[in-house]
Each structure stands twice: as structure tokens, then as C-alpha cells.
């Protein structure tokens, strides 16, 4: 079974050389870690030596050769989060779970890792659990967050979620509001970002109604294209670490005014999204 799945992943990445890291990323996304058999298969199919594949897999911190727990807790210790108390948060998570970064709890529930930036510096200190962002975390909040993660954070499902309400968002990097009051979609101010795909680069406006998928853009975006989102103010790419649970494309994080984080799938036509309110 596993062999078939890995063959699928390899087929999706094509024959060209240089795709090793993205192949390993896909495998890691599928199994949560890199099984030994998978690495051997990748080496065989791509024509790389096993040492090279193994060298890459052990070089990058994002790859794990050991099975991970059901939930992955990433505590950000990047510069912005560090000065706002990231290390204390990390210490509290360690204390609560009784494990050190890189380890998995004996009940296989949680894996703890520390990361050096999650691209949401305005929210620091940030904790991300299974792709859900928890902004401005205080040590007293850690226990609650872990308990919520244990119950499952993906309880709100995309299809059943019929709530429709307008939200205001800002850039996760510079915290500048992304709302555009001059152009309205669905009767509410739209969310204006810059996107690029292929050779094209232009504005995109998204409906600010949570639950509405109306957009308008400078260039027509073909269905199924994964586009890159940028903040029009700080020009940083809006990029988080998580992948869409629907289609596997990267998720685009934005801060919701009032506290929280919304993430939308970067693939045109995909309705995958996540909302975390605190």
C-alpha cells in the first residue's frame, strides 16, 4: 500500500531533478514523518544515492525520521516572539507535556518542536498546533490550548459551516490592515492583496464575508492554480507553515481583527479555510 502511495507522490513531482525536498515534504505531509522504506524508494526512483536523500532528510529540521504524535505543537522562538516571551511559553509547554523539543509524548498525542519563524511576527509569541495559529500566547493560556488540541481543533468542517459574517483582516507580517473600503464585494469592504502566478502579478480582492468565496482580480486566475499571496504594504509573502486539509496547497494566514487568525487555501477554486478566534 505504502509503495503505491509513494509512487503516486513521485509521479506527481515528475521526472525532473531537483525536486527532492518537495518530494520529501509531500511524504512527510502524508505520514507525519519519513519512513525508512519511503526514503529507500525515493532514492531508487529518483536516481539519487540513498546517502544523499538521507543527508537531506537529516539536514532540515522540518523533516522527521521518527514517527510523530497526533498533534504537532510548534512554539515560535524567532526574534519577535523571543523578545515577547517565546522562551517562557516553550518552557511552559515543555512542563505541561513533560517532553523536550523534538520529542513525542509517550501516549503519541503530542510532538513538540521549536521553530525560528512562522511568518506571523505581529502576533508574537505564537504557538501553532496542527496548522492552527494561537496568537499572543501567555503562559497561563498554554494548558487551555493543549486541552483544546487534545479534543481536536478541526471540529468546524468546511461544508457544514454555514456561518456568514464580515471580518476585518490585516497582514500577519506587518499588521497593516488589508481592508479596501473603496472596492466593495458582497456589499462589504473587500480584502485587497497582491498575487502572482506564472508570469502575472497583480491585485486580488476577496470578499470579507466569512463563508463567501467571491473574488475579483486584475488577471483571470485559471482554476486549480496555486497563487502566491503578498501584502501590498510590506510586500512580504503571506505564507504560513500549514497546508490545506482539502487539497494540500499552502495556506495563506491573515490576522483577524479582534484576535485570531484566518487561513485560506492558495489554490484557486479550493474552498479550504480555517478560522481560529481567541
Amino acid at each position: 500500500m505504502q509503495q503505491v502511495e509513494i509512487a503516486d507522490i513521485l509521479a506527481r513531482h515528475g521526472e525532473k531533478e531537483g525536486g527532492l525536498i518537495s518530494i520529501l515534504e509531500s511524504i512527510q505531509a502524508k505520514y507525519g514523518y519519513l519512513p525508512r522504506e519511503a526514503l529507500e524508494e525515493v532514492a531508487e526512483k529518483t536516481g539519487h544515492a540513498l546517502v544523499d536523500v538521507y543527508g537531506v532528510a537529516t539536514f532540515y529540521k522540518a523533516f522527521s525520521l521518527k514517527p510523530r504524535g497526533k498533534h504537532l505543537i510548534s512554539v515560535c522562538l524567532g526574534t519577535a516572539c523571543h523578545v515577547r516571551g517565546g522562551p517562557q511559553i516553550a518552557k511552559e509547554v515543555k512542563r505541561q507535556l513533560g517532553i523536550r523539543p523534538g520529542e513525542t509524548t509517550p501516549d503519541k498525542e503530542f510532538t513538540l518542536e521549536t521553530v525560528n519563524c512562522l511568518g506571523a511576527c505581529a502576533l508574537g509569541p505564537v504557538v501553532v498546533i496542527d496548522g492552527h495559529y494561537f496568537p499572543n500566547v501567555k503562559t497561563s493560556m498554554v494548558k487551555g490550548i493543549i486541552d483544546r488540541a487534545r479534543d481536536g481543533l478541526d471540529k468546524v468542517e468546511v461544508d457544514k459551516d454555514a456561518r456568514v459574517f464580515p471580518i476585518e483582516v490585516s497582514c500577519a507580517r506587518c499588521n497593516h490592515s488589508l481592508m479596501d473600503t473603496e472596492h466593495k464585494l458582497d456589499g462589504y469592504p473587500s480584502v485587497r492583496v497582491t498575487v502572482s502566478f506564472g508570469q502575472k502579478h497583480g491585485w486580488l480582492e476577496l470578499s470579507s464575508l466569512y463563508g463567501s468565496y467571491n473574488t475579483s482580480s486584475k488577471y483571470e486566475i485559471p482554476e486549480n492554480t496555486i497563487v502566491n499571496f503578498f501584502c501590498p504594504y510590506c510586500n512580504a509573502e503571506l505564507m504560513g507553515g500549514s497546508l490545506c486539509s482539502e487539497c494540500g496547497a499552502p495556506m495563506v494566514p491573515m490576522i483577524v481583527r479582534g484576535g485570531g487568525m484566518v487561513q485560506i487555501c492558495s489554490r484557486k477554486g479550493c474552498k479550504g479555510h480555517m478560522l481560529d478566534l481567541l
Binding site: L39, A49, D52, Y54, T58, F59
Partner: peptide, 15 residues
């Protein structure tokens, strides 16, 4: 080949 990074860098066979 080389495995790992930083102070964990080592040389040996895969696995």
C-alpha cells in the same frame, strides 16, 4: 555521506 547539521553533523551510512 554527511548526515545531520551543526553540532549533530556526522559521517556514516544511511540509518
Amino acid at each position: 555521506g554527511f548526515r545531520g547539521r551543526g553540532e549533530n553533523r556526522s559521517i556514516g551510512t544511511p540509518f
